[in-house]
C-alpha cells in the first residue's frame, strides 16, 4: 500500500467522522424533541412519532439513503450525495436517540419530580431545572453506544457515491488488485475511532461520578 493510498483512506476517515458528527448534531436534539412529544403524550403527534420510530427502526440505512437520494428529488427536493447522506443519517439515528431519551425520562426518579411539584414547580420548570441537567448524564452511555453504531453504519452511504473509509478501502483494493492491506488499514482506523469515543465516554463518566457521586447506571 502506497502513501497516496493511505492518504485516500485518511480522507475517507475524515468524511466518516464529519458525516457522523453532522448526523449526531441533528439527530440527537431531534431525538430529544421526539421523546418530549411522547413524554408529554401530545395527542396525534404521539402516535405519529411512535409510527415513525417503528418504521425507521425497521428500515436498513442503505434502503433509507437510496430513498432519500432518489425519491426526494421527485418531490422537488434535490440533494447532493453528501447532504443526502447527512439528512439520512440524522433521520435514521433520531428514532434510536428518541428511545434512549424516553427511557431516561420514564425512569427518572419519581420522588425528585414530586419534590419539585410540592415546591410549586410547573412541569415545564421542573423539566428545565431538575430533569434536563440530569437527563443527559443518565443517557450518556446509551447515546455513546448509539454513536458508535452510527459510525459503523456510515458505509451504507457509499451506495450513493460518498467516499468514506470503507468505500475508499475497496477502491484502493480494486485499483491495486491487493484488497487485504487497505481493508486491514480500514479496520485499524475504525477500531481507533471507536476506542477514542469509548475512552472519551469513560473520562466524562468518571468526571460526573467524582462530582455528583453517580453516573450512568
Amino acid at each position: 500500500m502506497t502513501w497516496a493510498a493511505f492518504e485516500t483512506l485518511l480522507t475517507g476517515a475524515g468524511t466518516t467522522v464529519a458525516l457522523s458528527l453532522a448526523g449526531l448534531a441533528i439527530g440527537v436534539p431531534l431525538g430529544l424533541a421526539l421523546a418530549l412529544i411522547r413524554w408529554a403524550r401530545i395527542p396525534v403527534a404521539d402516535q405519529l412519532v411512535a409510527t415513525y420510530v417503528s418504521l425507521v427502526r425497521a428500515t436498513p440505512l442503505l434502503t433509507f439513503v437510496l430513498f432519500v437520494f432518489f425519491v426526494l428529488p421527485t418531490m422537488g427536493l434535490e440533494l447532493d450525495p453528501v447532504p443526502a447522506a447527512i439528512v439520512t443519517l440524522a433521520l435514521n439515528t433520531a428514532p434510536f436517540n428518541c428511545e434512549i431519551w424516553r427511557a431516561g425520562l420514564t425512569n427518572f426518579p419519581r420522588d425528585q419530580l414530586e419534590a419539585a411539584e410540592a415546591c410549586g414547580m410547573t412541569r415545564t420548570l421542573a423539566f428545565r431545572r431538575i430533569v434536563a441537567p440530569q437527563l443527559w448524564r443518565v443517557c450518556l452511555g446509551p447515546l455513546v453506544s448509539e454513536m458508535t453504531i452510527l459510525l459503523k453504519a456510515t458505509p451504507a452511504v457509499a451506495v450513493i457515491g460518498v467516499v468514506e473509509i470503507t468505500r475508499a478501502a475497496s477502491r484502493i483494493g480494486a485499483a491495486t488488485y491487493d484488497p487485504l492491506p487497505p481493508f486491514l488499514a480500514a479496520t485499524v482506523i475504525y477500531t481507533l475511532l471507536i476506542a477514542v469515543i469509548v475512552q472519551a465516554q469513560r473520562v466524562i463518566e468518571a468526571l460526573i461520578a467524582r462530582r455528583y457521586g453517580y453516573a450512568a447506571p
Partner: peptide, 11 residues
C-alpha cells in the same frame, strides 16, 4: 464488533 458490516463483507 469494531468493524462495520460492509467492511467485513468486502474482506
Amino acid at each position: 464488533r469494531c468493524v462495520p458490516f460492509l467492511l467485513l463483507a468486502y474482506v
